[in-house]
Design a protein around this nucleic acid. Structure first.
Lengths: 225, 225
DNA sequence: GATAAAATATGATATTTGTCATGTTATCAT
DNA sequence: ATGATAACATGACAAATATCATATTTTATC
């Protein structure tokens, strides 16, 4: 396995604030893990004893609602750290993580990194900054969920995926989600998600090829109410 | 003004992890502030240069949605620190804070506390823990907003206020909110909020005296779908 | 205490969204 | 290839919620 020091992924997250020595130590104890599409990385209620660093692929963080439906809270991508909260708390996680693609990750045991939190202020500040950012994003999601229509939210998630994960060479969104996943992100019934995507197709805002979606009229999506 | 060291409020937040010396320094530079009901503490887009420590009263943190409506993101109470994010970022706040009661707060300039973040790991860990907790709560709110009915959310906010802020000696919720505030917490139209509260009243789940609300059947509220 | 303004209340109606039923298409393991 | 299974699609209807109109009550102000 390659060393953390030379891994470009570290530039995307707070690991960049670790010193060379700290990184070497982390590198020595990390475990490479691979997950296939659909595989569960961890589940709500488990106790995590480390953080996952995403090297490639995408996963969803979900939370089970009392009505039995899963709600996607966040999509996690290359460079993100998963399980940051386990560093500061021994509580069970409140979220599940499921791979949406084949994924490559590094697992870093909490015990190896917890010392750095108290000894390397630069690192700590960086973790703090990342959490503050997560919190800000979370506020935005809450307001969207509370104040926008399902159709609007669906348009926004399509644009979000387009902007943040890009497209393949034919212009199809490079993240492929089931209709159920879309429903679970947008917070609606699966049938409603299907209906809305069908409607977008009829209005030539998007086109589809199997599960692959291409945005045909980005501006049109923008103005959906 | 009293000293931070002897202020019981500090036990509720991360200030408790400051050393005696640090607390004395903070105490020396803090400013006491009073806000009247309805007064704006800060507004979305402002740059905060410190944290507020709530000594008494309640305020709402709101975010303006694109549709022009305010959404309440969190209710903030005695012991909470407001503006934690300003400590780790120079960005504008993404939230506004408005007093719901008369409030008493201490304002601590960022410059006086930022050093402690890098020098006192115990303090930093505590701030980290508080943020992790905010994040967890935020996930819960998101799922509630996405998956539960307006009626259910209304029932839950009533119980939440009852459990977290208590009642006066006649049994009325000690936090008094306008119907508009309720609507903005629950994420619905004001008329809908009014209608639902009226319905609760008809079903003898609550009773009201002016703007004051008393929960008459807590268990009934619990089972609202 | 009279008056204006704001908050609360309620009806009528339109729109959005959910649910159940059922059919079609795609996917996967053998 | 071929069933079996899951995913997708769509109609019909019900339920939830928003919107607009208009009273009524409360609160604030002079």
């Amino acid at each position: 396995m390659s060393k953390c020091e030379s891994c470009i992924i570290k530039e995307f997250n707070s690991l960049k604030s670790l010193t060379r020595d700290e990184l070497m130590r982390v590198s020595a104890c990390k475990t490479g893990k691979f997950y296939k599409k659909g595989q569960i990385i961890f589940e709500e209620g488990e106790v995590l004893n480390g953080v996952y660093c995403v090297k490639s692929g995408v996963c969803k963080l979900t939370k089970l609602s009392e009505n039995g439906k899963d709600q996607v809270v966040k999509l996690v991508v290359k460079g993100d750290l998963l399980g940051k909260r386990s560093l500061v708390s021994d509580q069970k996680t409140n979220l599940s993580a499921v791979a949406l693609n084949d994924m490559e990750m590094c697992f870093i045991p909490k015990s190896e990194i917890i010392d750095d939190l108290s000894k390397n202020p630069k690192f700590t500040m960086d973790v703090l900054r990342e959490m503050a950012n997560d919190l800000r994003e979370s506020d935005v999601s809450l307001v969207n969920m509370a104040q926008k229509s399902v159709k609007r939210r669906m348009a926004e998630i399509l644009m979000y995926i387009h902007d943040n994960f890009g497209t393949d060479n034919e212009g199809y969104l490079s993240i492929v989600l089931s209709r159920e996943d879309f429903a679970s992100i947008v917070g609606t019934a699966t049938e409603s998600a299907i209906r809305i995507l069908s409607q977008f197709k009829k209005e030539d805002l998007i086109s589809t090829k199997g599960k692959h979606i291409k945005i045909e009229d980005y501006n049109g999506l923008k103005w959906i109410e």
